[in-house]
């Protein structure tokens, strides 16, 4: 199925490396849909974007749902650690 479900996040002070090197990331689209490349019918997909730089300013990942959960857990742990080191809250 095509779920069309998409969450958009604004990103701050973030960068990604795309086909033309590093660039500033402004937003992320997170959705569950058919992948372009991953060998599965559906994947959890994330597009990191900077639309002001054009459509090619994109870092894309297509994740197996289990892998996406593990990644989310690792991201939360790392973000908690970063917050404790810098003294910042969530």
């Amino acid at each position: 199925m095509c779920t069309y479900h998409t969450e958009h996040l604004e990103l701050r002070d973030s960068s990604g490396k795309g086909a033309d090197g590093w660039f500033t990331l402004r937003e992320a689209s997170v959705y569950y849909d058919h992948p372009v490349h991953a060998p599965a019918e559906h994947t959890v997909n994330v597009d990191f974007l900077n639309r002001s730089l054009g459509p090619s300013a994109r870092v894309a990942v297509e994740l197996d749902p289990g892998s996406a959960r593990e990644l989310a857990r690792a991201l939360l742990e790392a973000a908690d650690l970063a917050a404790s080191h810098s003294g910042q809250g969530h």
Partner: peptide
């Protein structure tokens, strides 16, 4: 743009 980049932009 590459088709997958164009689709991501349209979705966004």
């Amino acid at each position: 743009a590459a088709p997958d980049d164009a689709a991501a932009t349209a979705r966004a």
